[in-house]
Simulated scan of single mutants.
Amino acid sequence: MKETIVFVHGMCHGAWCWNEYFIPYFEKKGFRCIAFDLPGHEHKGSTHRITYSLGNYVQALHQVVEKLDQPPIIIGHSMGGMILQRFLKTGSCKKAILLASVPPTGVFRASLRALFRYLGLIPYLLQRNLLGGFKKYPQLMFNETAGFASFMCAESFIAYLGLFIPVFHPISIPILVVGGSRDGLITVKEFQQTAKQYNAGLEIIEGGSHDLMLDTDYAKTADAIINWLE
């Protein structure tokens, strides 16, 4: 029976971000792939404001996993990585990959860095318009593939606030932490700290952006994940 990978997207994204490159890649490797839209993320480019909590997103992941016959491998990107960490408090999976993930300590440091580096983000933050900020400064997420910014949708500010709450529970399943050396939001040091906290494997993709699955060199990231899974 094929192993199943469940993909959890991050802030302002949707299942589309996996469908571009990662799902075709992993399907060719023999995996069954499931990507789903978190509540309110069903439409590319939507500017409709949403008010879901991070807990709502965690519950959405539980609902996907509960329908499966066997524990899956779960890959969580950015906010999706924090959703995955919170899911593992009561849920389970075979293996977990934290891809450019929010660290267990939360987004406080990442948010401060972004605001100091790009002061133009402050008005968007005050307006609770996270999408506007990311579209003005796509380099926070993308390298050469900034065209994907038009696909991004509005994000719940309530969910964003939930990312400030640290994760304290232990996680015992095998974990791989993957980060890009040119990530505009999370630092290599934070990836290293996440791997240390969870006694996890660590892969730093040289030149990789925050959206590693949409980089031109996405295969470098996918290959690193495959090698670890094998």
Results as ranks from 00 to 15, higher is better:
Leu131Ile: 06
Gly55His: 15
Ala100Pro: 10
Ala222Cys: 12
Glu3Gln: 15
Gly184Met: 06
Asn19Trp: 05
Asp223Trp: 01
Gly133Asn: 12
Gly132Met: 14
Phe148Leu: 00
Lys44Gly: 04
Gly132Leu: 10
Leu38Tyr: 01
Leu229Tyr: 07
Thr216Pro: 10
Gly30Ile: 13
Asp183His: 09
Pro103Asp: 15
Asp37Ile: 01
Arg128Asp: 03
Tyr198Lys: 02
Glu230Arg: 09
Thr51Val: 05
Ala15Leu: 12
Ile165Glu: 03
Val102Cys: 12
Pro71Thr: 02
Glu144His: 00
Val102Leu: 13
Ser53Tyr: 09
Asp37Val: 04
His41Asn: 13
Ile34Trp: 06
Pro123Met: 11
Leu61Cys: 08
Phe108Trp: 14
Thr4Gln: 08
Ala149Lys: 00
Thr145Glu: 08
Met79Thr: 09
Pro166Tyr: 05
Arg32Phe: 03
Gly179Pro: 03
Tyr21Ala: 12
Glu203Trp: 03
Gly106Val: 10
Gln70Arg: 05
Lys95Glu: 15
Ile171Ser: 10
Asn19Val: 02
Ile122Trp: 05
Ser209Ala: 10
Arg117Val: 08
Pro123Lys: 11
Ile23Leu: 12
Ser92Phe: 08
Pro71Leu: 03
Leu163Lys: 05
Asn129Ile: 04
Pro170Phe: 13
Lys220Ile: 07
Gln85Trp: 11
Gly14Glu: 12
Phe36Asn: 09
Leu68Val: 09
Ala100Lys: 07
Ala100Leu: 11
Met79Leu: 13
Pro138Glu: 15
Ile23Val: 06
Lys135Ala: 13
Ile75Tyr: 08
Ile173His: 08
Tyr124Asp: 05
Ser172Cys: 12
Ala100Asn: 11
Gly40Trp: 10
Gly106Ala: 05
Leu161Pro: 00
Phe7Thr: 00
Tyr25Cys: 08
Thr51Phe: 14
Ser156Asp: 07
Lys95Phe: 10
Gly40Pro: 09
Ala35Pro: 03
His210Arg: 04
Glu203Met: 02
Leu130Pro: 08
Leu121Ala: 02
His48Ala: 14
Pro138Arg: 02
Lys67Ala: 15
Phe7Gln: 01
Leu130Met: 08
His169Val: 07
Arg86His: 11
Thr145Leu: 03
Leu88Arg: 02
Ile97Cys: 09
Lys189Gly: 07
Gln197Val: 10
Ala219Pro: 00
Tyr198Cys: 06
Ser46Tyr: 00
Glu66Arg: 02
Pro71Tyr: 00
Glu144Trp: 00
Leu126Arg: 15
Pro174Met: 13
Pro39Val: 04
Ile50Leu: 09
Ser92Cys: 10
Leu84Glu: 10
Ser172Leu: 09
Ala96Tyr: 10
Leu84Pro: 02
Pro103Arg: 01
Glu144Arg: 01
Phe151Gln: 07
Glu42Leu: 06
Phe7Asp: 05
Pro138Gly: 08
Thr47Trp: 06
His169Pro: 09
Asp215Leu: 10
Tyr137Gln: 03
Val58Ala: 11
Thr105Gly: 08
Gly120Lys: 05
Leu202Glu: 12
Glu42Asn: 06
Thr105Pro: 02
Leu202Asp: 06
Asp37Gly: 01
Pro39Met: 05
Val177Ile: 11
Gln70Tyr: 01
Tyr25Gln: 07
Leu176Trp: 09
